[in-house]
Amino acid sequence: MRHKPAIAPNIPSVSADPTVEVTMTVNGQTVTRHVSPRMLLTDFIRHELGLTGTHVGCEHGVCGACTVLIDGRAARACLTFAVQADGAELRTIESEASEDGTLSELQKAFAECHGLQCGYCTPGFIMNIRAHLESGEKLDLSDEGIRDMISGNLCRCTGYKNIVAAVRKSAQHFNRK
């Protein structure tokens, strides 16, 4: 019996899984790719499209780092197969800033309120809050209400106080528009 694996002569760089074709709109652009049915939407966005702003924390729906908008609603990209998004309209964190790099008001509010440190969780927070802002529902901007809104996103460094302030600031700005 071998105890040490030998270096394989040639590992294929492309998965041997059977694939299906999917087409969707991502941040306004139509993309078509061939994917394995087991490819998670997170991996599709990151590895097939190269949009690495969508982060992966837990792959079981708990941390919220992978939150994206699917047809306008916040959803966990780690709990969706890419094939299921065939025909869908997707928005990721890359849709926030404009072409020249100017941050969105929501991103600015996070920066100004010191709502992030390492930034790992931030794309998920932003996409979740974006969906709330655009939902047309009346938002409860009390501390309790905002904490409920962001309860599905975990941040391991900033603490939530500044994030709550950032949400409130961006919501006030959004309402004035």
Partner: peptide
Amino acid sequence: VAHVPIRNR
């Protein structure tokens, strides 16, 4: 039941 993004799906 869970959080809004999970209830959305």
